[in-house]
Nucleic acid binder design. Structure first.
Length: 256
DNA sequence: ATGTCGAAGGGGCTTCGA
């Protein structure tokens, strides 16, 4: 059995104890983190090492930042999208146990029509081009992270209020579908899931208590892995911690 | 209340991003 997971931690400095606790309880083969918000010199390599984890990291000051935590060392590390000039640290990829693991912190996009929305679209175009090539080279591949896209209305607590808003625009949803059309599958939707399954709840408005959220953190798997996926779940438990991230981890389980 | 959280700059608060 293999397990891969993704978690936007919204500052690894704040969330490090929770991440180590979670890893102890969920010894996955690989976990990708988003929004570490750490420069590379500040990454807590020793803390992960002491707990028996291998780490690859790629960060910047204040914003963004990604990491790849794994049991076995990851090889063929790639940081950000090759050929796409980007000031922002958003992608880390490595091969773990024969599986190509790609972790991404997709741009938020702020609002349709904004400069940040245009950046999001360009970033997604570049990602798709690169991931397509990665799929040619790696039969077993997972693309996971904070996509900042709710793919369908059933991924939104109030689809009427959110219609056309950021995370829910037709352009973003088309981008998600185009990633799927590369030959990837949304592992979460391979299974019957509880209605109102979200991976993110705003800190404001008691959104978690009211279960008002979005499903914007995803794990897409290649065809070779799809045939072996036995489960995919959102772990809401860390969202109940005293100082939680606004996102919950998502985990996929693969047979053998 | 655009209602919270986290980082940064700078030394108490505001501003930015999400």
């Amino acid at each position: 059995m293999k397990q891969f997971a993704t978690w936007n931690v919204n500052s690894l400095s704040i969330r490090l104890p929770q991440v180590l606790d979670w890893l102890a309880a969920h010894p996955v083969d690989a976990l990708v983190l988003q929004e570490t918000k750490l420069t590379d010199d500040k990454f807590p390599t020793a803390d992960f090492g002491a707990a028996g984890w291998q780490v690859q990291w790629f960060g910047q000051k204040t914003y963004n930042g990604v990491a790849l935590i794994s049991r076995e060392p990851a090889t063929d590390i790639v940081k950000n999208i090759p050929g796409f000039a980007d000031e922002q640290a958003r992608v880390i990829a490595g091969t773990v146990g024969g599986v190509r693991v790609i972790g991404g912190y997709f741009p938020n996009g702020q609002a349709p029509g904004s400069d940040k929305f245009a950046y999001k679209m360009g970033w997604l175009d570049a990602l798709r081009g690169w991931v397509g090539g990665q799929m040619q080279a790696h039969e077993q591949l997972v693309l996971m992270g904070d996509y900042n896209i709710a793919p369908e209305d059933r991924d939104v607590y109030d689809p009427v209020a959110w219609a056309g808003q950021i995370h829910c625009t037709p352009e973003e949803r088309a981008q998600f579908r185009q990633l799927v059309e590369l030959g990837l599958t949304d592992a979460f939707r391979l299974f019957e899931q509880p209605a109102k399954s979200w991976s993110w709840w705003d800190y404001r408005n008691l959104a978690f208590r009211r279960n008002q959220g979005l499903r914007i953190d995803h794990i897409l798997v290649s065809a070779a892995l799809k045939a072996r996926v036995t489960a995919c779940e959102i772990d809401r438990l860390p969202r109940k911690n005293e100082r939680p991230s606004d996102h919950a981890p998502v985990v996929v389980t693969i047979d053998r």
